[in-house]
Amino acid sequence: MSAARVLTWEVSASRGFETAWVQVRDGVLRARGRAVGTEPEPYWVTYDLDAGDGFVTRGLRVTVETAGGSRTLDLRHDGGGGWSADGERLPAVDGALDCALGLCPLTDSVPVLRHGLHRGPGEVELLMARVSVPDLAVRPARQTYTHLRPGRIRYACGDVRGDLECDEEGFVVDHPSPARRLAAV
């Protein structure tokens, strides 16, 4: 693996921040991240994301802490389109290759990288295993990504529509959720 890149976003939708330590090499992405938010209630999130060969998600492990306590989720992809959460099958998201952690701009980089949408033409509509924060419920969601020009991708998921801005490596800089990456110091 290459040296970790550190990415930090201000996430207006949660009135919080997220930082991720990301390693990418040969179609594999590994990341660990932490986020703090105050909407819909104050929470902390820690996660580990593993996207294997060809940037296909293999797993997401998440812990959320709120005033009411902590909860965890171990979301796994079997490599053949099947998903499980804490060992229980999730047939509603069968066929998805990606997960989308709520209010986490990093997880949108995975399908962008897999399809090269930050560099060249294309449009994909994807079924996602969407994980809401802070409750960690997993639901199916359709997300569409359309290359507009290098570094700019039209994004649509439910009521959230707008343009993703990505850097030359495919990592989200600006997200319509809204979230904006902070410059490194």
Rank of each mutant, 00 (worst) to 15 (best):
M1L: 12
A4L: 04
V6E: 12
E10S: 14
E10R: 15
E10G: 10
S14L: 09
R15Y: 10
E18W: 03
T19L: 03
A20L: 02
A20R: 04
A20I: 01
W21G: 00
Q23E: 15
R25H: 15
D26H: 07
G27D: 13
V28T: 06
L29F: 04
A31R: 01
R32L: 00
A35M: 14
T46E: 13
T46P: 01
Y47H: 12
D48I: 07
L49I: 07
D50M: 04
T57E: 11
T57R: 02
R58E: 15
T63C: 05
V64M: 02
V64I: 12
A67I: 08
A67W: 08
G69I: 03
S70H: 13
L73T: 11
L75K: 02
D78S: 12
D78T: 10
W83R: 05
W83N: 09
A85C: 02
A85R: 00
D86Q: 09
D86R: 07
E88K: 12
L90Q: 10
V93T: 07
G95C: 07
G95E: 04
L97T: 03
L97M: 09
D98I: 03
C99F: 07
A100E: 15
A100L: 13
L103V: 10
C104L: 10
P105N: 08
S109C: 11
V110I: 15
V112I: 15
L113H: 01
L113F: 02
H115P: 06
G116M: 04
L117G: 05
H118R: 11
G120I: 04
P121Q: 14
G122Q: 09
E123T: 15
E123C: 08
V124C: 07
E125T: 15
L126D: 04
L126N: 02
L126S: 03
L127D: 06
R130L: 14
V131R: 05
V131S: 07
V131E: 10
P134C: 10
L136G: 02
P140N: 04
R142F: 03
T144I: 12
T144P: 14
Y145T: 01
H147C: 09
P150T: 09
P150E: 11
R152D: 15
R154D: 10
R154L: 10
R154K: 09
R154Q: 08
Y155R: 13
A156S: 14
G158R: 07
D159W: 00
D159A: 13
V160K: 13
D163A: 06
E165K: 00
E165V: 10
E165M: 00
E168T: 14
E169W: 03
F171K: 07
F171P: 11
V172R: 05
V172G: 09
V173Y: 10
H175P: 04
H175V: 00
S177I: 14
S177K: 10
P178I: 02
R181I: 06
R181C: 09
L182W: 08
L182A: 13
L182F: 11
A183F: 04
A184N: 08
A184C: 07
